[in-house]
Design a protein around this nucleic acid. Sequence first.
DNA 1: ACTGGCGATAACAAATGTGTTATCATATAA
DNA 2: TTATATGATAACACATTTGTTATCGCCAGT
Lengths: 95, 95
Amino acid sequence: MKQVKTFSEYMNDEERVSPAEREKINFEIELIGKMIEAREQKGLSQRELAEISGVKQPAIARLESMKTTPQIDTLFKVLNPLGYTISIVPINAKK
Amino acid sequence: MKQVKTFSEYMNDEERVSPAEREKINFEIELIGKMIEAREQKGLSQRELAEISGVKQPAIARLESMKTTPQIDTLFKVLNPLGYTISIVPINAKK
DNA sequence: ACTGGCGATAACAAATGTGTTATCATATAA
DNA sequence: TTATATGATAACACATTTGTTATCGCCAGT
């Protein structure tokens, strides 16, 4: 029986993607994860967030399921009504 | 003689743009400003940064002169070799 | 005056994101 | 079961960013 790899193993497979690519993917996963967390913490549905942010529900769904890499103004529009914004931080500051 | 408004005055003109719009513009200015600072602090030209980041010089120039609103992966690709990344932070954390 | 590097920009093609409308499968409540 | 709300997705037009190549004006150094 074939052992299926975990997602983490998949992501860290050297032959799958370059280190830079993996780094970018991890970055996006973390970013989108925080965005989803923020929305759910406010108890908002995608449709409700769409209304108050001005970004349409299908666009939000595409973002959250990572079908799409948002533009920073779209990300800003979505995050702002959730009480968050985007900031540039030194890489070392990653806690 | 007509008094010319400062940029700050221009940006804060109530009749010019909505508060939300102004907020977005200020956000972008701050973001791009930090990006330029980071590049110059490393003593890199746009062409050099283009080489190590994989983002072409015209694209970087368009970002820095705000002709364009980047996608987050483009911003990430540019910031990463400069030792920075993007993070989601609470609005209150603005110092 | 010339040279070289700088950022900005033009022009066009290619890639990608977003709006729009509608629908889907699923889960939950009545 | 029926109704309702959810997130995901399809399909297409439209808008925007990015790549590509080339060039521009400017400025510092020779």
